[in-house]
Structures are given as C-alpha cells and as structure tokens.
Design a protein around this nucleic acid. Sequence first.
DNA 1: CCGTGCGTTCTGGTCTGACCAGTATGATGA
DNA 2: TCATCATACTGGTCAGACCAGAACGCACGG
Lengths: 247, 247
Amino acid sequence: MEITRIAEGAKGFEKVFAFLRERLLAGSLKPGDRLVPERELALQLGVSRPAVREALRALTMLGIVEILDRVGTVVRRPDVSVLGDFFTFALAQQADLIDDVMEARIAIECQAVRLAATRASIADFERMQRALTTIAETIDDADAGGMADFEFHAAIVLAAHSETLSVLHGSMGALLTRSHRSRRELVQAFGTMKTYLIDDHRRIFDAIVARDPERADTTLRRHFAIGDEYRRQAVLGLAEPRKASGE
Amino acid sequence: MEITRIAEGAKGFEKVFAFLRERLLAGSLKPGDRLVPERELALQLGVSRPAVREALRALTMLGIVEILDRVGTVVRRPDVSVLGDFFTFALAQQADLIDDVMEARIAIECQAVRLAATRASIADFERMQRALTTIAETIDDADAGGMADFEFHAAIVLAAHSETLSVLHGSMGALLTRSHRSRRELVQAFGTMKTYLIDDHRRIFDAIVARDPERADTTLRRHFAIGDEYRRQAVLGLAEPRKASGE
DNA sequence: CCGTGCGTTCTGGTCTGACCAGTATGATGA
DNA sequence: TCATCATACTGGTCAGACCAGAACGCACGG
C-alpha cells in the first residue's frame, strides 16, 4: 500500500493537498488528530517542505486544520471563520452586494425562526429574553442597541439548533453589523422607531414561545420589511448627517 | 508612504497576507488586476518567496485570487468554489450535517422563490419551463431525474437575481446532489411519486408566474415537506437495497 | 510595408539545505 | 520522588538555484 499512490502524476502542492484531502474525506484523519511533521510528510510524498507548507496553509484557510506554531498541525472541526473571511473579501469588492447579503440573511433567519418555534429550549428562551431586555435598555444607544438587536437575531438562529444555519448567519453578521450601525444611526431619529424595535422583537419572541412557526416567520418577515421602510424614509427624508464625525 | 508599513511586526506569510488583504479590502486591487510577480512582491515586503507563495495560495483557497501557471496572479471575483470545498470537507467529517444543510437549502430557496416571484424575467421563466419539461421527460431515470430536479430548483434561485443566494445555494447543491441521488432511488419506487414530482414543481412555477411570493413560498415549503415525508416512508417501509452494486 | 518566426525574458513551480525560536520530553541532579 | 535543565523536535523563515512554459519583441522573409 504505497503512500504516494494517491495523485501520482501531480507534483508538489497538488500532491500533498490531494493526499491530505483523501485522508480527510475518507475519515482516516479525524478532528483532533495530529498530522505528521512537515519534514516527514515531505519525505513520504517526495516533495519539498515549501510544497507541504503550501498545502497545509491551504487547508488552514479552509478551516480544516490548524497549524500550531512549534507544536504541530492538528485536524479541527471546520467552523465559521472561513466563510467569514470569504464574505469579507467578496463583499469588499462588490459593496452593492450588501443588499444581496441582507436578503440571504432574511432567508436564513426566517427558516431559523421556524425551526426555533419548534425546537427552542428553555435556555434559548432565556437567551432571547435577555436580548429583548438589552434592546429595551439600550434603545437610545445606536451602538449598543445595534449590538443588542443582533444578539436577539443571533439568539433566534441559535434556537434553531442548526449548525449550518448558525454558520451562515454568523458569517454574514460579521459584515452586516458594520454597515448596519451607520444605518441604524440614521433611523434612530424617528420617534416611532423605538416602539417598533421593542414591540416587533417582542412579537417575534411571542410567536416562538407560542410554538407557531408560521406566525413567527410572518412576523419576522414583516419586521425586516418595516426596518427596510424606515431606512428608505431615512435616506430620502432626512439626509442631514447630524454628526460631524462620520466614522 | 512605506509599503512595508502594513503589518510591520508580522513576519513572512502574515506580512504578505496582511499586505494583500489591505489592498484588496481597500479596493486598490480589483478583480482583473494582475498582481506583481512573486519575486518582486517578496522583495518589496522583505520576505522570502515561499512566504509569498503561501500567502498567494491562501488567497487562492479563499477564491480571491487565481494563480495562472507561468503567467501571473490575478485578482478574481470570488465565487462558489470556495464554499463548495468548505462544505465538502465539513460534511465529510460530520455526515450528520446533511439534514442540517438541507434546512439551510430550504431557507435559501424559500427566500429565492419569493424574490423570483417578484423579479423573474422572461428568460427565467423559460429556464424554469425547460427544467419542468426535463423533469417530466426523465421521470423514470433516477440519475437524470435528480439532475433535472436540481436544475429546476437552481433556476428558481437564479430567477431571484441574487448573487449571494446563488452562491450559497450552489455551494450546498454540490454535495446535496450526491446524497440526493441515492435517496431519490429509494423514493422512486412510489407510484404517486411521479405525479408529485411533476405537479408540485408545476405548482411552484405557476405561483412564480402569477407573481405571488406568498403562495410560491408556501407551495415550495410544502414541496420540501412532502419530499421529506416520502423519504421517511421509503426508509422505514422498503429498506430493501435493490441493487447489489452500492455505488 | 506587413506578417510570420524565433529567441530572449519573465512567470510561476519546485527543490535543496540551512538557520531560528520556542516546545516537549527525557535525563540528571537535588 | 520531584524539580531542573539540556537536547531533540516542531513550525517559521530564508537564500539561491533550476525547470518549463508563456509573453514579448525583434529580425527576417514575403
């Protein structure tokens, strides 16, 4: 059973990457395992160490392995970070994608809220309740308020108990919060905004507690629509920047 | 304006990566641009070429950059492939995530179908119509049928005209189709399955054509639910593997 | 004058071998 | 027996070199 059997034709990086991919996909390399040292891997595959490092770095970027300085390389369970990086770069080059991403976020959350209405545990309820309280408390603080808002929505997704949904939502949240804070400042001016923020979230929470997926979805969807409408009016109506320090 | 200003403390890979990230996020490196040669980049940043290669390889994994053999490195618009790789690895190590991913797919498609009902163009209608026809034609072929099925759903997402939704859907589709084919074979046994496949998709299409987002969503959601039910029954009822050659 | 062909230059791809700096482990001493 | 220290081992990096193919420009032929 030759080790170099895999990816015979390939050279260097490709060879190492293919080798490791096989092992990872086949399951012979599981999360927590420590990889063989770079030098030995290079010997086994008949490639140079730089080639091995490239492959390891590539896997690191995919979140598959983690390189521990002066310790070794270990396989880890993939997590959000990769997607976060990806979206960060992707959106940086297409800022107009933000509305696009917002739509995806709505998609995720609406599905999540349905699942949450079915699966939410006591702990989930508590987390959401806590976020609701924070929202009410920070209603006059655009910065903390935005954070609290996001916390509540994140709590919903968590309550869905879906790893994938959490991952996707998390990766989008990272950059949406950035653009959101500025937008929220605009909207803050509206007097009705406060009751909207508090009551709307409350209604969503109630629907989840009531174990009513349909109502939860509808309410959440309307919540987004109203927020959109507020922003639209804010942009059109009072485009007066009230703060000189434009971030 | 020193080039090495960025990430002064960092060394090697980190330095190069930070440098390029800054350029990419700031927009001074746009899709289509050709990066400076590896050697020159190494010189500018005062690092070795292997370090540069690692950074470039990392960006390649993120889909930000494309290394063209013996030509150069160019910035490209990020696309699906990265997420596909990620999910491939992620699911290999956690097969139980498949149901999880399925939920995410439902989330994406339900949002997409709403948007599609609003934004779908003639071309989109045609694409969906074509897929519907193919579904009907390949109704007895598990393999081609699954493909056609996926085509239709993909057409819905395309009709939403949302880059992000497309990306997410595409990345999930890559691996869902794999597990789907086998599942579809199971389900194929049911006689009512054929009408379900044809009529249900037709109904979804009709709702989109009618520009009725709500109905489209509801119909699609029910479509998934029914499919789930079929699969459940198939697994429970006739768990007899009819083919010895297990792929 | 224009077009084709060839050669130089430049690109990424890779390798070799070496050094550095912490870690981990074992042997050694108290 | 336990604490301490030396050494082997790890990843991180560097330097310089070679290869093969692509790109470009120049010279030659039509």
